[in-house]
Computed example of a mutant assay.
Amino acid sequence: MPKAIWNGAVLAQSDRCELVEGNYYFPPESLNRTYFKESQTHTTCGWKGVASYYTLEVDGKVNPDAAWYYPIPKEAAKNITGYIAFWKGVRVEPA
């Protein structure tokens, strides 16, 4: 079962991830919300739409904008609506 880990904490774990462009997108209910804080950052992908971000905080360490998701993606990416992906040092173990 894929899981996302940063600073020794399991951020998300699920067997219902979606794999898109080499990134595992985790369903929202799989997150350990304790570590997630809303960010004001937004970016745009040509085929997925506008992404929103989370900043991670684990044991006093902060990783700004290390998780992203598409709250209202374009039609081609409907399968990842609200699903969360990671970068910036977050390790995703496939299974």
Rank of each mutant, 00 (worst) to 15 (best):
F36G: 00
W68V: 02
C17W: 04
G22R: 12
L31C: 05
G46H: 10
P27C: 01
I80R: 06
P73I: 13
Y24D: 02
P73A: 11
A4K: 08
T34W: 00
D59N: 15
R16L: 10
F26V: 05
K48V: 06
A51K: 09
T43A: 03
R33M: 10
K88W: 03
A77C: 09
A76C: 01
V20P: 14
Y25S: 07
G22N: 11
S52Y: 03
Q13P: 00
A76K: 15
A77K: 06
A66K: 13
W87H: 11
Y54S: 00
G82V: 05
E38W: 06
I72L: 14
L31E: 09
F26S: 04
E57M: 10
V58G: 07
I72H: 14
V50G: 05
Q13A: 15
I84Y: 01
N7Q: 12
F36S: 00
M1G: 15
D15Q: 12
Y83T: 08
C45E: 11
K48Q: 07
A4E: 05
S30E: 06
F26Y: 07
I5K: 10
P73N: 04
T81M: 05
G46F: 08
T81Q: 14
V58R: 07
G46Y: 09
A95P: 02
L11C: 02
A66M: 14
E93M: 06
T41D: 03
Q40S: 13
V62Q: 06
V92F: 07
T34E: 12
A95L: 14
I72F: 13
S52L: 01
P94M: 01
M1V: 14
V58Q: 08
R33C: 05
V90P: 13
A4Y: 08
K48M: 04
Y70G: 02
A9Y: 07
Y54F: 15
E93T: 02
V10G: 02
A51W: 13
Q40W: 01
V62S: 12
E21C: 02
R16Q: 15
E38I: 06
Y69V: 08
T34Y: 00
Y70N: 04
E93W: 08
H42W: 07
A12W: 03
S14E: 03
G89Q: 11
T55S: 12
Y69E: 04
N32A: 14
N7C: 08
N32C: 06
L19R: 12
Q13N: 12
L19K: 14
V62P: 07
A76H: 13
Q40T: 15
K37W: 02
D59K: 14
S39L: 04
A12S: 11
Y83G: 06
T34G: 00
N63V: 06
A51T: 12
A51M: 13
R16P: 01
S52N: 11
W68E: 04
P94V: 12
E38T: 12
G46R: 09
K61W: 00
K3V: 00
A76D: 14
K78W: 03
G82Y: 00
E18D: 04
G60M: 10
W6T: 13
E29S: 10
V90S: 05
A9V: 09
P71S: 11
Y35I: 01
V90I: 03
L11K: 10
W6G: 11
S30W: 04
K48C: 05
F86Y: 11
G82R: 00
Y24F: 15
A9G: 07
Y35W: 05
I72V: 15
P27R: 09
N7L: 06
L31F: 04
K88H: 15
E18I: 13
G89M: 08
F26K: 02
S52C: 09
G60L: 07
